[in-house]
């Protein structure tokens, strides 16, 4: 039982990080109708920025987080302006290849600046783990614990998800994003500045990526290196498709489910085959429901 709960907590933990990354994919897809494969590498840049502020400048972790968020926001806007905006009218395949190119560009830049060896990420939160539950069975003590970084990760991811939902549904900019995502031309006719809206979307997605990168490295899910963002990026993209790409609640649900399936798969199926298990489930879901769990059917207009 305790083992199960431990895996469940770990699953929720990593799942909530996947969800935050998946939000970046899904928002950009919704608004700009493109798959930003460089998103995973923005995660890595965010983690490196935080690492630099902590390790080189010796500043407080909160300042490191702020620095990484600001840095990635600017990076996201620059990527969109320099790489994707000139291709607004191009075919989606050209944009996709550009995104893959941007992904490698960021990885190589990171390698140039920080080297290819892995860095040990400083711990951003101290304290003892909270013991939730303790049993003694056959002389063996089993405990269910929640470490401070677990609490921080889950709390910040859930706060981000709630805040983003409110932002999208209640604010003027959030509603403008929904309009652009549904019909760019009609949005322009309302007086919405579509270019600005797309920039803001990239800015938010990249800021979220920075937070996710720090949480990933701080909870030791991934060592810090120029390729840190690749696998979580792909997994979060999978989560976004799983939940229904373009759908914000879908990305959240997809991310959390993916984290849970991955961890329970590791525990009860095979730790080597966990990823295969995750992708197997994804394939089954997409066979049954091609738009993803919460994806909307696309109506072709004549």
């Amino acid at each position: 039982m305790i083992t199960f709960l431990t895996y469940l907590i770990n699953g929720l933990n990593i799942g909530s990080v996947y969800a935050v990354i998946a939000l970046g994919y899904t928002m950009v897809y919704g608004v700009a109708k493109m798959l930003n494969f460089a998103h995973g590498d923005v995660i890595m840049v965010g983690a490196f920025l935080a690492y630099c502020v902590c390790a080189y400048l010796g500043l407080h972790p909160i300042i490191a987080v702020l620095g990484a968020v600001i840095g990635c926001t600017i990076l996201g806007i620059l990527i969109e302006r320099l790489a994707y905006k000139p291709l607004r009218q191009a075919t989606s395949l050209a944009v996709l290849i550009t995104a893959i190119g941007m992904s490698y560009f960021l990885q190589n830049m990171a390698q140039l600046i920080w080297g290819s060896d892995t860095k040990s990420f400083p711990s951003i939160i101290q304290g003892d783990a909270i013991v939730l539950f303790k049993t003694v069975q056959d002389g063996v003590t089993k405990t269910l614990t929640l470490s401070p970084i677990n609490i921080l990760t889950m709390a910040s991811c859930f706060i981000i998800m709630i805040a983003l939902t409110l932002f999208i549904n209640k604010t003027k900019m959030g509603k403008a994003m929904r309009c652009v995502s549904e019909d760019k031309g009609a949005a322009e006719l309302m007086g919405i500045n579509v270019n600005l809206t797309i920039s803001v979307t990239f800015a938010i997605g990249s800021a979220l990526a920075a937070v996710a990168g720090i949480l990933l490295c701080a909870s030791n899910y991934a060592p810090l290196s120029p390729t840190t963002g690749s696998l979580p990026g792909i997994k979060a993209f999978t989560a976004a498709v799983f939940g229904g790409i373009g759908s914000i609640p879908g990305a959240m649900l997809g991310g959390i489910l993916l984290g849970l399936i991955e961890n329970l798969g590791k525990a009860y199926v095979s730790s080597e085959l966990a990823d295969a298990f995750v992708f197997g489930i994804l394939i089954v879901v997409l066979l049954v429901k091609p738009t993803g769990l919460l994806g909307k059917k696309i109506h072709e207009k004549v």
Partner: peptide, 18 residues
């Protein structure tokens, strides 16, 4: 080309965006 996924009221709000 109304915003199909938004409510009637939200559509009107968007009309007054400027």
């Amino acid at each position: 080309r109304i915003f199909q996924q938004m409510t009637v009221k939200e559509n009107l709000e968007m009309g007054g965006y400027s």
